[in-house]
Design a protein around this nucleic acid. Structure first.
Length: 632
RNA sequence: GCCCCGGUAGCUCAGGGGAUAGAGCAGCAGCCUUCUAAGCUGUUAGUCGGAGGUUCGAAUCCUCUCCGGGGCGCCA
């Protein structure tokens, strides 16, 4: 809010200079108002003079001088304006001006304080979506935390967000078959399958099914349906306890059952983006993903038992036309449909949840990075076959590679336009690996004995160790808070170490408690003040201290951080922000005694600042899905 | 071979083309008869992997290169 006001002031001053003829016509960008790293650089600084000098046909110092001269006229705002270095303009604001933002910010409340702009897109966010053949692992925990926090942020700026979980329950799935056989072998006298699932959770599923009268004689189909349902339920519970809820759990198999997959791939075939010509196109890529060669390979030989051998024809999605590095099979020779075939139907359907979604966001783990090209191709093919791609003519020369890939320039331009549109409509976000460090050593997600380090175990362990004397509910809540915060502390785009030893520590080293403690302190002080007859109320001219100014400026930045986060999906910035906000508060708390019976006006004003900070902390933590406790 | 991510203080990591590159932890020195010390203040610490380039200005953008992690099936 404060940055915005200053930016607007600088912008209008520039306009004044233009209108009075002191500067030539030039369209300047929105001035950036930056933090300063040193106190003698003022409260804020702008580089606008350096950025725009060229456009105005002058040099930075001169432009800065002209701007500063005019800006100094606002002597209610600026105590001092300096020009420094190559052309920075440093703003020293009047405390009263800064403090004057407090009532407006307080009025915004918890929702408004996080929102500086309004978006109104309809967005479908799909995340977690692991196979229903095991618990949610600590690895998927990152996707769960990240996805749910991203949804919160997108929602906070006004979008309609639909949270979706895709259940990979296709009955043809090899993994699910293997999982079912593993469970079955624990109950019936059948051999344990080669490469079967061995973890304790498999036996737990078996134990739950044992009491079923059908279990002894049931076939593998029965086991597949039953054990899958139990696993999905366990996943749903674990995610819910982790603070992650979905609007929709979408079944892959439901698309097959309704014949939608078969129908949709036929549409692609009819539209010419899929065909049964018995060859696969594979691209040889050079540096920068540039296509160097187009290789047409004859239908590949059957490789192993997962390959199809049959009388029919293979149906190929010609995904190489949309940026994929090889064509993908939609239907095997034996008639079975592939996983990517479901993706065609699924993505078509997804655009309707919410109806006519403007954007799909899919959050995947690092092992699915190869999916980006594939999914983008699927969406591009869909958009093209539905006639949603506008005709475009490219100026680019028609190369040999283009000729081999597309045949003619018109087709090329249509396909490339479809790809660009698909990249806009579907944003695939990949989060990177997490390494869990326990006793200074990496703790594996999957162990040799088949056991899995489950998210639920992580949350429980942290809760138990960090809170030795709490109720089970309190421990669960604390474990969830700590785990979520740790997952979200670092950029999703970087691998990082999850320090379990630190997470389990109930001490000042743990940043979660540092932030929550600030909130608890605020609640406590407001309670105490109430007992002594003081209520928070902004009083003009009371807040003057540098710590008070720093705190106000920090509070004012929440909406700005949220805005940036909604643009680039960098959730970790919210975590960094709440830590910084807590720091500003603790620093203020130490320097400025709040409750002072001899100075009732100062007391009320500082209480108002405390309350405002509490609101911002709660809002920020809320976006992360972390609670803001009243007491600690 | 190609694709994605990373390389910044002893450790874990922030860093938006801008000023003398930051935080936490670890280390050192202080601060509770007063609103929650799960706190605060000060301080030590870096060839931003390397080389070119663009720019008035590069940790940030581009190219090349070295090192580490992950991915490249008619599996999901």
């Amino acid at each position: 809010m404060i940055r915005k006001a200053l930016s607007e002031l600088v912008r209008s001053t520039l306009r004044d200079l233009l209108e009075s003829g002191d500067l030539p016509e030039h369209a300047a960008r929105t001035p950036e108002i930056a933090d300063t790293k040193q106190a003698d650089h003022g409260h804020y600084a702008t580089n606008v003079a350096m950025v725009e000098a060229k456009g105005f046909g002058t040099n930075p110092r001169e432009l800065a001088t002209k701007l500063a001269e005019r800006l100094r006229a606002h002597d209610d705002v600026f105590a001092r304006i300096d020009i420094a270095g190559p052309g920075f303009i440093n703003f020293f604001l009047h405390p009263a001006y800064l403090a004057g933002f407090l009532p407006a910010m307080a009025e915004l409340g918890e929702e408004g304080i996080a929102r500086s702009h309004e978006e109104s897109r309809r967005i479908n966010v799909e995340f977690v979506s692991v196979n229903p053949n095991g618990p949610i692992t600590i690895g998927s925990g990152r996707g769960a935390a990240y996805g749910s926090a991203l949804c919160n942020v997108l929602e906070a700026v006004g979008n309609e967000v639909h949270r979706e979980y895709y259940i990979n329950d296709g009955v043809n799935s090899e993994q699910m078959r293997l999982f079912a056989l593993s469970v079955q072998s624990f109950i019936q006298k059948i051999p344990f399958p080669e490469k079967g699932y061995r973890g304790d959770y498999v036996q737990e599923v078996a134990e739950q099914l044992r009491s079923d009268p059908e279990a002894v004689t049931a076939n593998t189909d029965w086991y597949q349906a039953k054990s899958q349902a139990l696993m999905i339920e366990a996943q749903r519970r674990a995610l819910s306890e982790f603070g992650v809820e979905f609007d929709c759990w979408f079944s892959e198999q439901s698309l097959h059952d309704a014949g939608i997959v078969a129908r949709d791939i036929e549409t692609l075939k009819a539209q010419g983006v899929a065909d049964t010509v018995p060859e696969r196109i594979q691209l040889k890529l050079g540096k920068g993903g540039k296509v160097e060669e187009v290789n047409r390979e004859a239908q590949a030989a059957v490789l192993d038992e997962n390959d199809a051998d049959g009388e029919g024809e293979t149906l190929w999605l010609r995904s190489t036309r949309f940026g994929d590095d090889m064509d993908r099979v939609l239907r095997r020779r034996d008639g079975r449909l592939t996983y990517i075939a479901s993706d065609v139907a699924y993505h078509k359907d997804k655009f309707n949840r919410p109806a006519n979604s403007d954007q799909l966001i899919t959050i995947l783990g690092p092992d699915h990075h190869g999916y980006i090209g594939r999914l983008t191709s699927v969406v591009a093919a869909l958009l093209l076959s539905e006639g949603k791609v506008q005709e475009q003519v490219s100026e680019a020369p028609f190369t040999d590679v283009d000729a081999q890939l597309y045949g003619d320039a018109v087709t090329r331009d249509r396909c490339q336009a479809a790809q660009r549109l698909a990249e806009e409509k579907l944003r695939v976000q990949i989060y990177q690996l997490v390494r869990f460090m326990k006793d200074g050593k990496p703790a594996p997600m999957r162990q040799r004995d088949g056991n899995i380090y489950a998210l639920a175990d992580l949350v429980r362990e942290i809760g138990e160790k960090a809170l030795t004397d709490g109720t089970p509910e309190e421990r669960a809540a604390l474990g969830r808070d700590v785990a979520r915060f740790f997952y979200l502390m670092r950029s999703h785009d970087t691998t990082f170490d999850f320090d379990l030893d630190l997470a389990e520590k109930q001490s000042d080293e743990n940043p979660v408690f540092y932030v929550q403690y600030a909130h608890a302190r605020i609640c406590s002080i407001i309670d105490r003040a109430k007992q002594e007859g003081f209520t928070p109320e902004f009083v003009h001219g009371q807040l003057m201290e540098p710590q008070e100014m720093a705190l106000l400026m920090k509070v004012s930045d929440l909406s700005w951080e949220v805005q940036r986060c909604a643009q680039d999906f960098g959730i970790h910035r919210i975590s960094t922000y709440v830590i910084e906000l807590a720091r500003s508060y603790h620093s203020f708390y130490d320097a400025c005694r709040v409750i002072q019976p001899d100075s009732p006006e100062l007391t009320r004003a500082r209480l108002a600042l405390c309350q405002l900070t509490g609101t911002a902390l709660k809002a920020g933590l809320g976006l992360l899905g972390v609670s803001a406790p009243q007491r600690m």
